[in-house]
Design a protein around this nucleic acid. Structure first.
Length: 196
DNA sequence: GTACAGATTGAG
DNA sequence: TCAATCTGTACT
C-alpha cells in the first residue's frame, strides 16, 4: 500500500484539495476495514477566508488542530448532529484544511446493500462520517502515522479536465465574496457527489 | 449562567 | 420550505 506522506498535505491547500480526488480513505474499525474513494472536496484557507473556522486567526478548542502541520484529522459536529471530516493542510501555523464532502464506497461493505443504496451512503459530509464510523475520538489523529485511518494512493489519476470547480456549500454567512470562491472540487460525472 | 447559530439532512 | 438537535462560542 502507498499511504500518502506528510509532504502531500504540506502543498498549497487548493492543490491538495484537487489531488485528494480519486484517493482512498482507509478506516480500520476493529477487524473491519472500510474503504471509500474521495470524489468531492472543499478547501478552507484561514485566516483570510471568512468561511473558515480559523477566520481572523481565531484559535479555539475546536479548531486548534488546524494550526498544526498538515496531515491530521480535524473533525467537529455541526447542527448538533453531523460530524464533518477534514484533513489539515499547509505547514504549522497555517490554519488551512480540506473538507471531505463525498465518497464512493469501495471494497466490501457491511451488510447487504443495493447499487442504488450505494450511491447515497456517503454522498455528503455528514453521511460519510457515519459510513466511516468517525466521531470526536478521531480528533487530531495523524493520517501519516495512524493505525486506524489513513489515505492511500492506488495509482488512479484524475485529469484536470475531469475536475469540476464549484462554489462551496452552506457558507453564505461568510458573505458573497467568500461564498462565491470556487473552492469545491468534484470528479466530473461521478454519481457519488453530494446533491446540489 | 444564558443565548444563539451552525462547513447538514431528509421529510413534507 | 423547514425542523431536528446540541456543542462551541460570545457575552452578561
Amino acid at each position: 500500500m502507498t499511504r500518502l506522506k506528510r509532504e502531500f498535505y504540506l502543498k498549497p491547500t487548493l492543490e491538495t484539495a484537487k489531488k485528494l480526488l480519486g484517493k482512498r480513505i482507509v478506516r480500520k474499525d476493529g477487524k473491519r476495514k472500510i474503504v471509500g474513494k474521495i470524489v468531492e472536496t472543499e478547501a478552507y484557507i484561514g485566516p483570510k477566508d471568512k468561511a473558515s473556522h480559523a477566520r481572523e486567526g481565531k484559535i479555539t478548542k475546536r479548531n486548534q488542530v488546524e494550526y498544526l502541520a498538515g496531515g491530521r484529522i480535524y473533525i467537529y459536529l455541526v447542527y448538533g448532529m453531523y460530524w464533518q471530516l477534514n484533513f489539515t493542510t499547509a505547514s504549522e501555523g497555517k490554519p488551512e484544511c480540506v473538507l471531505i464532502r463525498a465518497l464512493e464506497p469501495a471494497g466490501k461493505i457491511a451488510g447487504k446493500i443495493t447499487e442504488k443504496e450505494k450511491l447515497k451512503i456517503a454522498n455528503g459530509p455528514g453521511k460519510l462520517c457515519d459510513y466511516l464510523k468517525l466521531n470526536k475520538s478521531l480528533y487530531g489523529e495523524d493520517l501519516c502515522d495512524s493505525k486506524i485511518i489513513w489515505v492511500e494512493d492506488r495509482g488512479e489519476k484524475i485529469k484536470n479536465e475531469e475536475i469540476v470547480a464549484a462554489k462551496r456549500i452552506g457558507i453564505d454567512y461568510a458573505g458573497p465574496y467568500w461564498a462565491k470562491r470556487k473552492w469545491r472540487f468534484y470528479i466530473k460525472g461521478s454519481p457519488f457527489v453530494s446533491k446540489k
